[in-house]
Design a protein around this nucleic acid. Sequence first.
DNA 1: GGCCTATTTTAATCAACATTAAAATTCATT
DNA 2: AATGAATTTTAATGTTGATTAAAATAGGCC
Lengths: 201, 201
Amino acid sequence: MSEIKQWHADKGPQYRLKHDRLLRVAAACFNQKGYSGTSLKDVARQLDLTDAALYYYVRSKEELVYQCYRRAADLGARAMARGQAAGGSGLERALAYLDHHLDALCGEEGPVAIMSEIPSLKPGHKADILERSREHSLAFEVLIAEGIADGSIAPCDVRMTGNAIMGALNWIPKWFRPGGPVSAAQVRGQFTEFCRRALGA
Amino acid sequence: MSEIKQWHADKGPQYRLKHDRLLRVAAACFNQKGYSGTSLKDVARQLDLTDAALYYYVRSKEELVYQCYRRAADLGARAMARGQAAGGSGLERALAYLDHHLDALCGEEGPVAIMSEIPSLKPGHKADILERSREHSLAFEVLIAEGIADGSIAPCDVRMTGNAIMGALNWIPKWFRPGGPVSAAQVRGQFTEFCRRALGA
DNA sequence: GGCCTATTTTAATCAACATTAAAATTCATT
DNA sequence: AATGAATTTTAATGTTGATTAAAATAGGCC
């Protein structure tokens, strides 16, 4: 990550804006067309740029993917932090986290990349993303465990339950389209409702 | 599909066996290394073959993916059929389906491909897989609706709930490894248990 | 053993993108 | 208007891995 900081450090706010836009557009492309299905030209076209121009913002396609995933991980981590900081029982905090994460997934922060291609990241990047993922899953499992301890969540296999809910969450970008038949608010409400039922004691 | 029938029709049982083995190995590769991360050479190596030899079984890499997905869809459809045929309330049938599908996902039928790369299929294949997917989702939603009608499932947004559970299910091959710390039987039991809680009235 | 088919290999070929280098343009600042 | 940094384009170049064609091998059957 220090590499990226250095790479970005000196650039102005203009740069940052466009770079962020790039990540969102790329995430949308990867989610919709698949990784191998999206060429840099595809991404560039949506930004009114040439494919070559992307290299001003990114070292390689691999790094573009990596940064998309990193962004996704950051958003997830932020949601998790908020959830943990929320008051109430374990269940309430878990749901608060989910609500925040859903907001990121479906809301204005733009599309978030589904991490389907972690394995084809280069070793260092892969390790980084995998570590963050594990951390995230673990944090969620802790929330569940705390909920069980305080009686707000029904006893269950924590690992399994965590995996199930994370899976359901990760899959959302597959079927949710902003501006589609279902609104972000609906998804948010109904999904947390679903989880409340699934977890509640 | 008629194309594949023709392609396979005259081949003997030897062929069929190896072809089936190919699909399983390929599915495992795609799930573990990602689509772009697995070259035909990778797949071939695991079969003690040369990459070129695969073309005796498959027209192209795209078709290999397609057939993996088709196999996944077939297994899903079979599980669904069994679930529908099972007796009991809507909830019981839904759970029966899930149990069968989990069996296929984690059991001896070998690894089942995660459909992450549908968008990069060629139009005809894409349409075919998408249609089957929709059919499958719809069938599951019907089960849920019937469960609500007969009082075995708590009222909920059927579409949303279906998507959530299908997402959780589809994600399983991402974290489940046969021979890993968690047994297939455990996953099966705990996952259906989870769904029972989530759905039950 | 000889013949026909099924299967696999060897050795090229090809094509699609990713990537790079150099040149052109934009744009703020003076 | 002139200068220099930031941004983008044009025009090659490379590389990876899919694909193909022809040749080699294996195996059942007469």
